[in-house]
Design a binder for these strands. Structure first.
Lengths: 340, 340
DNA sequence: ATTGGCACTCACCGGGTACGAGTGCCAGCC
DNA sequence: GGCTGGCACTCGTACCCGGTGAGTGCCAAT
């Protein structure tokens, strides 16, 4: 069936081009891959593939390179999953095992991902709204200022200083602390607003003024303006091959420093499936010459992802290997976070 | 006096080269700067300057560019201080004013520094060892695990999970919390070891086993393995002009991702004076084609700096402007941290 | 449908040349 | 003694130009 072979040709083109970074011609292709037909036949197939928009030629007398659309069908239909090597699996476990706290987990993950894939890696901290309250601490700074510290089950710590309308004493702060913790501990932050709504009514009368101002701060911190954070590593991998981004490295690096942009990249991951966005499929303008491979990580087997992680690289990347690495790291990160 | 003029020539060369990024020749130089002598005279001066190692020519028939040594005498003797513009001052205050917590302060500072100087900016979190204990919190995770959270006066929060040898109850944890806080609050972490030494003896008998394991963790976290942290922004400024780092952008970016390297860069700042290290003066190999302008920031007017901040850029940079910006940001960061 | 053949295109490479910025040196001048 | 104008020289850059070869598209034959 000649259509099958046409896709074999496309697969071969993608693989060769990813490996060599050079436009691939009909002759070399017919030889190196054992698809027992002559270069002329390959040429015919190429002509069709080009007409259908899967490949293109940079200039008349050169070979073909895949288009975004070509990569798309490659990852969707043609790529066979590439299992990680034993060494890679070992690297992942040993690397993440020694982490002492959340910062450590996130930092190690991002470095790991960057080294495994040789791309720029991005890891999001567990989203506040999807975490649960582990503990809420109130520290008296002085008579009119209170430090509110929120600790989540994923290990995130958020703090805010609250200016008080009137002086407080240690004792009532202690009561409030106890009250808030029994009410909030274990609660999903996403449900915090609802839980907070009827809280003033059930609180001891004398705590209510203090309670309301503290609650307002907590809700503002974690619900209205949740401080979603992202970190990046391996930026130097971008210029491993300078030809990848002809003149556009600057904008790409700029985009990678914009938390907002990164959150959008990672925000659309659903559960723990790996998402691939190729070139122009990215709606972020500076990244339209790049591909993003991302996945969410979850502490539980199922459920809403706590956060996302992934890598950014040239459209010409090793998709099977990258996908495998991202998936594996996402699994392990979820696992490690689930333990604590 | 002809020696004065020679240095005028050097200053002019540095300024022109920084501005144009091109080797500067005798003719253009004699014209553009009003140093009423002929090109021929300038050539003679240049010959001397070259012999003394202040300038060099990239190839025979090109103009001169400053050497590291040339930049050195420029910053030491020739550069006149360049005051910040009103707009820049305003940017600094408004930018740092809205910060809600330490992370926010540090992130805003590093972005600010990057935009002001158009270089890569680096900011260190306040050093743990030079901070004071504000509060120590113990959260019971389960019967055998305790979460220890340390909050410093500079707003840093460090947490560690402690595995306990035996089960504990809320009550003794509460006692221990009270005990530790009265003993540690306000203490410099640098003095924590000393203070901890005799602590077991004065503690209530029944708390001692628990105390020792918690203390061990705290000391390990903040004294033996203090988690000094650094963040970077503006990496894309490195390739604002690709000619700056002929082939060496990769290594430079790599170096900027190494916490250890960055800490060494910032570690040598003394008080709040601005330090400039030019090219080969850097002992970090990949940065020998770069310059580092750094300063420490202090919460109090005098005293040990809490941490360092600075920028990394090509040796060909606007030293007066960069120095002014780094100094100003360091002052403001210290000020903001002192308030809380 | 596949294949071998063939003419054609065009980027890349190497060599050769013209150009011009910039220098060093020297003789003359203040 | 220091400064200046003049002049020959160097050498990197830009440009041109023909040769080479990889790769293509098309066509006739199988």
């Amino acid at each position: 069936m000649q259509e099958d072979r046409r896709f074999d040709v496309l697969r071969a083109i993608v693989e060769d081009f990813v490996a060599t970074q050079e436009p691939v011609g009909s002759k070399a292709l017919a030889q190196r891959h054992g698809l027992g037909v002559s270069p002329a036949t390959v040429r015919n197939d190429m002509a069709v593939l080009e007409e259908e928009g899967y490949i293109t030629q940079p200039h008349t007398s050169a070979g073909r390179i895949p288009t975004d659309r070509g990569y798309r069908v490659f990852v969707d239909r043609l790529a066979q999953a590439k299992p990680l090597s034993a060494a890679e699996r070992r690297a992942i476990t040993t690397f993440l095992e020694g982490a002492v706290d959340l910062d450590d987990v996130v930092h190690r993950s991002v470095r790991l991902l960057a080294t495994l894939t040789h791309q720029v890696a991005v890891v999001q901290y567990p989203s506040l709204t999807r975490s649960r309250v582990r503990h809420l601490e109130l520290v008296v700074l002085d008579a009119r200022r209170l430090l509110v510290v929120l600790i989540t089950d994923t290990g995130r710590v958020e703090q805010r200083t609250v200016e008080l309308p009137s002086a407080v004493d240690e004792e009532s702060v202690g009561e409030l602390r106890a009250f808030l913790n029994t009410r909030l501990a274990g609660l999903h932050l996403a449900d915090a607003s609802a839980a907070a709504a009827d809280m003033p009514d059930t609180a001891p009368q004398q705590l209510r003024p203090l309670l309301s101002v503290v609650l307002a701060t907590v809700l503002e911190t974690v619900v209205e303006q949740p401080d979603e954070r992202v970190i990046v590593a391996g930026a130097s991998n971008l210029m491993r091959n300078p030809a990848d981004f002809p003149t556009t490295i600057g904008p790409v690096l700029d985009a990678l420093e914009e938390q907002v942009v990164l959150l959008r990249l990672l925000g659309e991951v659903s559960s723990d499936a790996v998402t691939v966005r190729i070139g122009g499929e990215n709606d972020v303008a500076p990244l339209q010459t790049a591909s993003v491979v991302a996945a969410g990580y979850t502490a539980l087997a199922a459920g809403q992802p706590l956060g996302g992680l992934g890598v950014v690289g040239p459209t010409r990347m090793d998709y099977p290997g990258t996908i495998a690495a991202v998936r594996a790291v996402a699994r392990y990160v979820g696992q490690v976070l689930g333990e604590s």
